Computed example of a mutant assay.
Amino acid sequence: MHGWIILDKPLGLGSTQGVSAVKRALRACGYGPKLRDLPKVGHGGTLDPLATGVLPIAVGEATKLAGRMLDSDKVYDFTIRFGVETDTLDLEGRAVAESDVRPARAAIAEILPRFTGPIDQVPPAYSALKVDGARAYDLARQGNDVTLATRPVTIHALTLGATDGESATFTASVSKGTYIRSLARDIARALGSVGHVTMLRRIKAGPFTLDSAISLDKLDESAKAQALEHCLLPLRAGLDDIPALPLEPGQAEALRQGKVLTGTAAHDGHYFALEGDTPVALVVVSDGTVRVVRGFNL
């Protein structure tokens, strides 16, 4: 079994728990009665337990593309509640700052261009980033002062949704490495207030959206019905933004052996090399030369 299972991750579930749920479903369908016999399974981008939404789970040869998924853009819906900033910048933390300021909708809309495009961002102290070999969230939970370096990120688009005087909801399309909790903190502070995230939902990760996502209940039902394949998107689905490169059998075999192809008429760039309908490799073309980036054993 090779491809993608896109979970609509529920509140409170960690990304590694999502991977475990897929492994259990695979075992229930008879894939590998022993753990070592299971197909490889991995997730394509961590999603906080307090967040919901799109969590791509790679199965089999798709795990070779999980790293590429980590580098992809993401889209989130999120809500900021103004007036209280917490140490975790979300509902889970304790209050560390308060403000009586509740910004008007017009004021919120006016500052959004300041947070669109390339920006510098300080990640939350409660994050998985490492400081001297230790996770930042572990140090923060131990009561240590955690100072993380500013990092460049890109906010491709930021739009304002509903507001109610206390809270405001946004949709943000962001580059890899962007922390929505930090974005919420900085928006609130720029408005002369403070705030924290009360709702965070990932609605897109790379090419995957909620349209192709399934609930844990649906995953379990499919496993019990021995129909897990119906939940599986093809390996190709993780590369929908890359054009296909059709191969002749001899060319496909050469790439499987790690050889370089020459004389291709394709433009420079990345391609998904196929022999018929069978994925062969993710390749890069440069000056008519084709080289393997990731080969698939299918």
Rank of each mutant, 00 (worst) to 15 (best):
K224I: 06
D90M: 07
L219H: 03
T46F: 07
E85Y: 09
D77C: 11
D277M: 15
G32W: 09
A237W: 00
L239V: 13
L255H: 10
I80F: 11
L232R: 01
V290S: 08
V59W: 00
L160N: 05
E166C: 09
P207A: 12
G238D: 00
A21H: 06
V260P: 01
I155N: 09
F296M: 05
D240Y: 07
A106G: 02
V283L: 09
G117M: 08
D211I: 13
A281D: 03
S182Q: 12
L298H: 13
S167R: 15
G250A: 13
D37L: 14
P56Y: 01
P234V: 09
T289M: 15
A254C: 12
G45E: 03
T52W: 03
S127K: 02
A125P: 01
A58E: 00
G67S: 07
V174D: 01
D240I: 09
D268P: 08
I155G: 00
G195A: 05
R291V: 10
A128S: 15
G192D: 10
K218I: 14
Y31L: 04
A97N: 05
S222W: 03
G263M: 12
E98W: 08
A97Y: 09
L160K: 04
I5F: 00
V54W: 00
F115H: 02
I214N: 01
S215A: 08
G143M: 09
T198R: 03
S182W: 13
A95C: 04
H156A: 11
G12D: 03
A205H: 10
G12F: 06
G269S: 13
A95K: 12
F296D: 07
F296N: 08
E229S: 14
G53Y: 06
M1H: 08
K34H: 14
K218M: 15
A205E: 02
L7C: 03
R151C: 05
Y76E: 00
A97V: 07
F78E: 00
G238V: 00
R181E: 00
L216A: 07
V197S: 05
F296P: 03
I180R: 02
L112T: 06
V75K: 10
K204V: 07
A107V: 08
S286V: 10
E98M: 10
D241L: 11
A213D: 01
A252K: 04
Y271N: 13
T116S: 13
D37Q: 14
R202N: 11
T154I: 11
A21Y: 10
H270D: 14
A184K: 03
M1Y: 07
K34V: 14
G83W: 12
T198W: 03
Q251H: 13
A162M: 12
S286C: 14
H2I: 02
F82A: 03
F272T: 04
E61L: 11
K74N: 09
T289A: 15
T198N: 01
T262Q: 15
A66N: 09
G32R: 04
T16P: 02
E221D: 15
P103N: 08
A136N: 11
H156E: 06
V96W: 12
L50Y: 13
G32P: 00
V131S: 01
I108P: 01
V19G: 01
R291Y: 11
L129V: 14
E248M: 12
L47I: 08
P124S: 13
L274V: 14
K34Q: 12
T169Y: 10
D48Q: 02
V96M: 06
D211C: 10
G53Q: 09
L7S: 03
V22D: 01
F115T: 05
R94N: 14
I155W: 10
G263K: 09
